[in-house]
């Protein structure tokens, strides 16, 4: 979507040995399939100061991740089926496991690990609940009807398969 900033230039400065022998720039942001990053979000790889030098680390985002508008993300890894609400700040080196819902306006402090199946919210974030068993199941045959009603599709896709939504955008 518009106004999304992916800081792919902030890659790891450490040389990565490649098969061909010559030095290639390593990937700094890898994003899985059917992931939606909404308008105004910034994804910046996390960095760490070590011996006076800034080292960037690669960021990995899984499949079917929804990132709401106006988010700032510096997590080290976000697994699949994660829903991140609007105005969320994820600080450096956060690890988010599968099936997590991040409520809007949350600030996730650095180095936090969010176990799978939890709902987090607050500033700083804490686990406030669990997602239901139905999380991430692609709506029991809602397939054909997806996006028909128009308007905000977010309710349809929360944690579920985002393929239809991605199609509707393109």
């Amino acid at each position: 979507m518009a106004d999304v900033v992916l800081r792919g230039d902030l890659h790891s400065t450490r040389p990565v040995p490649s098969s061909s022998g010559k030095e290639v720039t390593p990937t700094s942001i890898s994003i899985g399939r059917c992931t939606v990053i909404s308008a105004g979000s910034v994804i910046k790889p996390p960095c760490r100061m070590s011996r006076g030098q800034t080292h960037y680390y690669p960021i990995k985002i899984g499949d079917n991740v929804f990132v709401g508008p106006q988010c700032t993300i510096s997590a080290i890894s976000i697994s699949s089926h994660v829903y991140i609400g609007a105005n969320v700040t994820i600080q450096q080196f956060v690890i988010i496991k599968e099936n997590v819902k991040v409520l809007p306006n949350t600030v996730i402090p650095a180095n936090m690990v969010i176990a799978s199946g939890s709902v987090v919210g607050g500033q700083p974030a804490r686990v406030v609940g669990e997602v239901g068993e139905g999380w991430g199941v692609s709506g029991g045959g809602a397939g054909g009807g997806l996006g028909v009603g128009g308007g905000s599709e977010e309710k349809w896709v929360e944690g579920g398969d985002l393929r239809e939504l991605v199609r509707s955008i393109k």
């Binding site: 496991k97 099936n99 799978s116 199941v137 029991g140 128009g150 308007g151 349809w156």
Partner: peptide, 25 residues
């Protein structure tokens, strides 16, 4: 712990019709 899969899972989602409401454009 790291697995998110279920051995058994019987969801209402798979047995009950899903209702959703939208404003008519």
């Amino acid at each position: 712990i790291t697995s998110t899969r279920y051995k058994i899972k019987v969801l209402a989602l798979e047995h009950i019709p899903r209702l959703s409401i939208r404003a008519l454009p």
